[in-house]
Design a protein around this nucleic acid. Structure first.
Length: 547
DNA sequence: AATCGTCACAACCGCCGAGAG
DNA sequence: GCTCTCGGCGGTTGTGACGAT
């Protein structure tokens, strides 16, 4: 690069011994006694290589050293030629169109740089890769999503058009690259950047059970974790592999002793973030029933011994939105089965997420848990409602949101003639049974960390980011997480008063602000929630199809 | 002016698959 | 079927440029 001797700054010899393999590696640095050079190419070397290619054509790169005397290994020659010397290379900064195309392609292909390069004449995979990596860093640092909403929209459309989620021209390039296990880390756009994406939230009546279900996978839970170094592509891969295994063997796929021990969950969350929703499309969205491998999503755990808790577990750090989402999305009239089933599915993750599966064997299989969760959620909402009403009468608060949810729950439940839970308990009865362990000491956030994320330091920090006296008031109670009722009652798993940070005046990290937008969060929370839920679907469906 | 962090880029490394022997 | 070579690909590293402090 800078040491290239185009300007004569450094001669080949001056490149120094440090750049020359000492021949200790016969296979790589020394061929037939010739020490192969490494490091930046000189103009002289370039000329030799160009001349060689002109004479012999591309390929047979290992012969370059033999026939041209160039002290470079074949791979290095090929790379130099492909990235810098071959004709028709397009140098310089990427144009806006190119950038957009890259983003689009990445959304479709993942880190398939070579394939992406095929769509960008004159550009090399290395350029694209570098650009993308830089972009990731930049946007992550800024707390911005990687993909604009229109891309997600397009991807969703493509996913609908083909159950295989095929990408653009290459049928093998699915929206999620199956062969590679690559899944685009579909990060939802910020509301700020994509206000339009949330301007057409479907009418609640249009929200399907699946969408409701998907709220349980909502990314905002992860968004709360704040910016996390994105230098974890491997983690992303791992995450995808986790998903890959999901359809086949959930237990294997999610056998990690601590699903939050690293940033995988974050990446997964990003993978699910897909807030773009077009009401026009919703009816054509693939149902989970129709998607192979998504059986459990539609059936709920009640019908399968290996339900989706594994999947939902991925969102365990959930701190927000679900409750709000439910409340908002059920304003209309989902069918009664949808309501209940959605609730059921929503509640699958907490027990596992808090690693109670070992202590509370198979809580998901008996149908009790979901009922408890539902009612506990309702209780929690009620509590928030009462506390918030007394303190804030103007701006929407988490409690307001929760209360609306609560009211909605009640309304919906009663509306469908099911005044009591499927278990036969009234919500009240369950609420009364809820037993807070202690109101003293640390906040729920700390509790979460201590009990659930013992090794997830970054998440604790993330949680702490949102700690504030207000939030402490929000969650004054600690629960005994060894008790299912308490677990369920800790609606933090589901509803953590999502879009409340702003309204509460609690600090909102930049990333959070970016993810949720600077618009009034509470006013948009419904739409956001709707969009999230819908846009999660393709990802989940596709993931379930991964081998 | 010095220092530090970030960016942008080139190049290398390791792995993998295809094909030939 | 096995081994080897080659080429391709994706990930990572190294380094100068650049801007902020």
């Amino acid at each position: 690069m800078m040491v290239e001797s185009d300007d004569g700054v450094l001669s080949k010899d001056q490149m120094g011994s440090s750049l020359i393999e000492k021949g200790k590696d016969k296979d790589k640095g020394n061929i037939d006694g010739v020490v192969l050079k490494k490091g930046p190419w000189t103009s002289a070397e370039d000329a030799i290589l160009v001349d060689y290619v002109k004479k012999h054509g591309e390929g047979n790169w290992n012969a370059v050293q033999k026939y041209s005397g160039l002290s470079r290994c074949g791979k290095s020659c090929r790379l130099r030629w492909a990235n810098h010397l071959r004709p028709n290379l397009r140098k310089g900064a990427f144009s806006a169109d190119e950038e957009r195309l890259i983003v689009e392609l990445h959304a479709k292909m993942g880190n398939k740089w070579a394939r992406m390069a095929a769509y960008l004449p004159g550009r090399t995979d290395n350029e694209i890769k570098n650009y993308w990596n830089t972009r990731i860093k930049r946007r992550q640092r800024a707390g911005l999503p990687l993909y604009p909403s229109e891309l997600r929209m397009q991807a969703m459309q493509e996913g609908q058009q083909s159950s295989g989620f095929h990408g653009i021209n290459d049928a093998n390039n699915g929206f999620f690259e199956r062969s590679s296990g690559q899944i685009p880390d579909v990060v939802f756009d910020s509301l700020k950047a994509n206000q339009g994406a949330f301007s057409f939230v479907p009418k609640l009546s249009d929200v399907s059970a699946s969408s409701l279900l998907m709220k349980s996978l909502e990314p905002p839970h992860f968004a709360n974790l704040g910016p996390v170094a994105l230098n974890c592509q491997k983690h992303l891969q791992e995450s995808i592999y986790m998903y890959s295994g999901f359809s086949g063997n959930p237990k294997d796929a999610f056998s990690s002793s601590n699903p939050f021990e690293d940033s995988r969950c974050e990446k997964i969350a990003h993978s699910f973030e897909y807030p773009y929703h077009d009401p026009v499309e919703e009816n054509s969205l693939p149902s989970f029933d129709a998607v192979q491998g998504c059986h459990s999503f539609t059936n709920g755990f009640s019908s399968t011994p290996e339900p989706i808790p594994e999947a939902l577990e991925l969102e365990l750090p959930s701190l927000q939105f679900i409750e709000t989402d439910l409340g908002s999305s059920w304003d209309s009239s989902p069918s009664p089965p949808t309501l209940l089933e959605s609730v059921d599915r929503l509640i699958q993750s907490p027990p596992r997420s808090i690693k109670l599966d070992s202590e509370c064997p198979s809580p998901c299989n008996n149908g009790l848990l979901e009922t408890l969760v539902y009612e506990a959620k309702t209780l929690s909402s009620a509590k928030n409602q009462s506390s918030d009403k007394s303190s804030n009468s103007s701006a929407p608060t988490p409690g307001d949101i929760s209360s609306s949810s609560l009211n909605f729950y009640k309304t919906e439940w009663d509306e469908y003639g099911d005044p009591i839970s499927p278990l036969g308990h009234s919500a009240t009865s369950v609420f009364n049974e809820q037993t807070p362990v202690s109101a003293s000491g640390s906040s729920l956030d700390d509790q979460l960390h201590a009990d659930i994320f013992p090794v997830s330091n970054f998440k604790l920090e993330s949680f702490n980011q949102f700690q504030s006296p207000e939030r402490e008031q929000e969650f004054p109670t600690q629960y005994d997480y060894t008790r299912p009722d308490a677990l369920l009652a800790s609606s933090g798993w589901f509803g953590f008063q999502s879009g409340s940070f702003k309204a509460q005046g609690a600090p909102m990290p930049d990333s959070m602000a970016s993810l949720l937008g600077d618009d009034d969060l509470t006013s948009d929370s419904k739409q956001t929630a709707e969009a999230y839920s819908w846009n999660n679907m393709p990802a989940v469906c596709q993931i379930s199809e991964l081998p």
